[in-house]
Structure formats: C-alpha cells, structure tokens
C-alpha cells in the first residue's frame, strides 16, 4: 500500500476522496488539532507557538525605538513581519536561498497587519509620541506539514496580543530609559480567523496537509475578523473557482470562528 502511495499518489488519494475521507481519517472538512501557547520566548516582548496537526510555527516579536516616519497614511507602518521557511522544517527548503513561498507569505502577512487598526497612541514610546516603538515580527516554521498560512496568521495575532511594551521615559532629549517594571500591552481589539483550502480535482479539502498541498491544483486562503469581514482572500490555481464554492468556504470558516476565538483568548490568559 505504501508503494501504491508513492507511485500513484493522486490515484491513492482519489480512492479516499471519493468516499469523503482522507488517508489520515479526517473528513474533507475536518481540521487538525490546533493549539496555541504564548510567552514561550522570554527575551522577546511577545511570542507565541502554534501547532496545527504536525505543522508547528513559532513567532517572536522584537521591539525597537525609532523616530516616526514622515508618511501620513492610515495604514500601519510600525509592524514588520518576516516569515522564514528554512531547512529545519522540511527538506525542500534551502538555507541559502530564501524560498519564493516564504516571500509571498511574508507579503500577505504584512498586508494583513497593515490594516489591523491599532491606535497610533499605542506605539508611543513617551507621552507625546516624539519617538515610537517599532515591532519586528519573526515567524519561523519548525515543522512543515501543510497549511503554513493558517498557523502563521494565528501565531501573528496571538503574539501581537501577547506583546508587553515597557513604559518609556525621555530625559534631556537624548537619553532613553525603559521602565521595565511597568509593562503595558497593545490594544488590539481585532481577531484574525484564517482557514485554508486545497482543491484536488473537484474535492475541496480544508486544512490541507503537505501531501495534499503537493497534489492540489488550486489553493484558497480566507481570513475573517470578528465582525465577519474579509481581511484576506487569496485564490490561485490551475482551474477557476465559482462563487458558490467561495460562499461555502466562508460558511465553513464561520463555523470555526468560535473555537478559534476561544483558543486565542485562553492562550492570552496564561
């Protein structure tokens, strides 16, 4: 049976999909066991660790002070996200060349964060805002078993909610002091709830594993916030997708929102 899986992976999967199950026992809509924990990295000002099935992602946030930028836009310019897929997570990634997939995902995560609507005052180092905090979010994948996007988005929002910034004091216009006794967190009232799908032939699979992603012809990632507004929708694939399938996908995500919200909230309490 293992030989059959290696020689004809698509045929092997088709036999399962036709009966609406997957080789690991899940139905087409089941999502793997998800767990979120925060605060694992004590040297970072915020961190989180997310595990979806075997896919593990760790996220750490580093804070730095800097002067405000001159751009005057509504969008967030204080948070920079970088996702790295290195050889530790899978043998398909090399350590020297940054993978295109990692760059594309970093770009998507940055655009998600840009429109998160965190009040500007949260980033003030001192009272007036002459100097600002800049947050550098680093997401590392430790184990790649498909669906890196969901894990990264959950890791991102959990670690942002976990961020504790010290109060800042500026003396004599040149000396900065951080009062590490008094810590405050960012006021992030929004949540991000992601769900990714892979389409193999005409079957739509939620939360694809690595092998399912490799066999898929198209990929869809959707993210809703707590008001059921679309924060990210990304569809690309060899075959086109119809509106009805998009609407069904949103319904599936809506059913999962309660569970994800409780996961994110309970991770913050510890």
């Amino acid at each position: 049976m293992e030989a059959f899986q290696k020689i004809h992976p698509l045929e092997f999967y088709r036999k399962f999909l036709q009966r609406s199950v997957r080789p690991d026992g899940r139905s087409l809509n089941d999502i793997r066991k998800t767990s979120i924990s925060t605060g694992a990295i004590t040297t970072a000002c915020g961190s989180s660790f997310v595990k979806i099935g075997n896919t593990s992602v760790i996220c750490g946030i580093r804070s730095e002070v800097g002067i405000p930028s001159f751009e005057n836009t509504d969008q967030q310019t204080n948070i920079f996200v970088n996702l790295e897929l290195g050889p530790i997570c899978s043998n398909i990634y090399s350590s020297t060349k940054p993978s295109e997939q990692a760059m594309s995902l970093s770009s998507k995560l940055n655009s998600l964060v840009k429109r998160l609507d965190i009040p500007k005052e949260d980033f003030y180092f001192d009272q007036e805002g002459k100097v600002l905090w800049y947050l550098y979010v680093d997401i590392y994948c430790l184990d790649y078993d498909g669906n890196i996007m969901d894990a990264s988005i959950l890791a991102l929002i959990s670690s942002l909610k976990n961020v504790k910034l010290p109060r800042g004091i500026i003396e004599n216009t040149n000396e900065y002091y951080k009062d590490t006794e008094q810590l405050r967190s960012l006021q992030i009232n929004h949540y991000l709830f992601p769900l990714s799908f892979s389409i193999i032939e005409d079957f739509i699979l939620s939360d694809p594993s690595n092998q399912e992603e490799q066999l898929s012809t198209s990929n869809l990632t959707i993210t809703l916030n707590e008001n059921f507004e679309i924060c990210l929708l990304s569809y690309s694939g060899i075959k086109p997708i119809s509106e009805t399938i998009l609407q069904e996908s949103f319904e599936k995500l809506k059913n999962r929102i309660e569970y994800l919200k409780s996961l994110i909230d309970s991770a913050q309490e510890h």
Binding site: R115, F228, I230, L232, S236, P240
Partner: peptide, 15 residues
Amino acid sequence: SSQIIMNKTEGTLSM
C-alpha cells in the same frame, strides 16, 4: 467561463 481564475484581496471588506 464565468469563474474566477485568480483573486487576492487585502484590507477589511464585508462579505
């Protein structure tokens, strides 16, 4: 066909 080949949205948008 009248189906979507590629779509990417960013920012907050009601369904």
